[in-house]
Every structure is written in structure tokens, then in C-alpha cells.
């Protein structure tokens, strides 16, 4: 079966519908599926629920889907870098479900692993616990969180082989593997599709069983906070 598609629009063909839930990889602007996000913007799919750690910045990443009002609800842990997000949220145009970062990652992992719910100590005694089942294990309180199963996962990896085996690079891995596993369909964009057999099977980060469609493309890979130190003459 061929998993390789010519571009993002072709890879998403037939998968998008209004009101759908999308799980996206990425942390800040690092490791975001920028080509697939742009294609969803161009497709104009509406009333999206998007589970993603962050919401991009104004004009880039998921920020693009906010500008076009395609997003109905975000499930995120931190949205501080996006002024348009703030504006839509504070004016009541956009729903927001804050999830602690580790809870969001585990909800995706659980959803993809056939685990409908799990108990965690994260958020006990806070607004996050409101309305959630509480259970005591060994004298400590835990709250029930549910697994996320998305209609579509959008993911960015570094390299893939034609069978969909993925390798990520440095901290661009972040939410991509858990997001990939929790979608009914998973579409992945990579910087390079390499020939079958050229990835060492022992070094594959995510096996191709989770990957349904694959594209290769050029990535902008924008840097959010460029921090450096000066080269010193004498060390």
C-alpha cells in the first residue's frame, strides 16, 4: 500500500470535515506540522476542535487557523504567545480547555493505547479537578482523566521511510509521537523520505503502523525565542 502523497492537500483529501477533532504535534513552534496546518487553512474546514500543547503564534502554525476562525475549541496547556487567541478567547468566540501539559500528553498516549481513562495526581485541589472523579490510592487523591481519540492526527517528523517508520530530531519530537497514536487517521509531514532499508530498525522512534499518509516538504522551522551567547576569544 502506498502511503506517500505528493503534497499536503492531496494527503488530507477526503479526511477533513466540519466539526472534526484534530490532534497536533509540536511544542511552541518546534516540530509543528506547518505544511498540514497551512493545507487545513486553505481547505477552510470549520468548527475544529484542536488538541495541541500550544496554539502557535499570530500568523504562523495553528495561529493561522485562529485568524480564519476555523477553530471552535482548543485543548492546550499554554497559549501565552498568541494575541489573536487571547482576543477570541476573552470575547467568548473561542472555547478553551486547559489541560496540564503532562495530562494532555498522557491523554493522547492513552487514547492511542486503548486506555479510556487514567488517574493522575496532577491538578488535584485545583480548578482542573472540578467535576472529575476522585479516587484514593495508598492514601493519596487522584483524578480521572480520559484518553483522547481524534478524527485526525497531524504530525511532523524529521525522516520517514516509505512504510511510515519515523525518526524525529532533538526536541522537535515532543508531542508528535503521542499525537500520532491517538488519531483514527494519522498524516505525517517529514523533511526527507528515505529509501526502505536505510533507517536502522533499532533507531525508529515511531513505527509505521501509526502512519497512514506521508508527505515530504520544505519547512520554514521558525524560531520563537532566539537566545545565544557570545563567542569568547579565550575559553
Amino acid at each position: 500500500m502506498n502511503k506517500i502523497y505528493p503534497n499536503a492537500a492531496a494527503a488530507l483529501d477526503g479526511l477533513l470535515f466540519d466539526g472534526m477533532t484534530i490532534a497536533s504535534g509540536g511544542f511552541g513552534l518546534c516540530g509543528i506540522p506547518e505544511l498540514l496546518i497551512a493545507a487545513i487553512r486553505d481547505a477552510g474546514t470549520k468548527s475544529l476542535t484542536v488538541a495541541s500543547n500550544n496554539a502557535g503564534v499570530d500568523g504562523f502554525g495553528l495561529g493561522q487557523l485562529l485568524e480564519t476562525r476555523q477553530v471552535k475549541k482548543m485543548i492546550s496547556s499554554y497559549v501565552g504567545e498568541n494575541a489573536e487567541f487571547m482576543r477570541q478567547y476573552l470575547s467568548g468566540e473561542l472555547e478553551l480547555e486547559f489541560n496540564p501539559q503532562g495530562t494532555l500528553a498522557e491523554r493522547m498516549r492513552a487514547g492511542g493505547a486503548g486506555i479510556p481513562g487514567f488517574y493522575t495526581a496532577t491538578g488535584v485541589g485545583t480548578v482542573i479537578a472540578e467535576g472529575k472523579d476522585v479516587k484514593v490510592f495508598n492514601g493519596r487523591e487522584y483524578i480521572l482523566e480520559t484518553g483522547i481519540i481524534a478524527d485526525l492526527s497531524i504530525v511532523k517528523a524529521w525522516k520517514a521511510d516509505p512504510s511510515g517508520n519515523l525518526v524525529f530530531r532533538k526536541t522537535a519530537r515532543n508531542f508528535n509521537p503521542p499525537a500520532a497514536t491517538c488519531g483514527k487517521v494519522c498524516v505525517v509531514e517529514v523533511e526527507e523520505i528515505v529509501p526502505l532499508g536505510s533507517l536502522d530498525p533499532d533507531t525508529i522512534h515511531l513505527p509505521g503502523i501509526y502512519v497512514h499518509r506521508l508527505i515530504q516538504g520544505a519547512h520554514e522551522k521558525r524560531i520563537e525565542q532566539r537566545t545565544t551567547r557570545k563567542r569568547e576569544a579565550a575559553q
Binding site: 478567547y89 486547559f98 496540564p100 503532562g102 485545583t126
Partner: peptide
């Protein structure tokens, strides 16, 4: 309204 990020997980 920025969000808790990983702080709730860390303190727990």
C-alpha cells in the same frame, strides 16, 4: 490567561 504548561504536573 496563558495556561499552566507543565507546572501542575511538576508540583504533583
Amino acid at each position: 490567561v496563558k495556561g499552566m504548561g507543565g507546572a501542575m504536573d511538576l508540583v504533583a
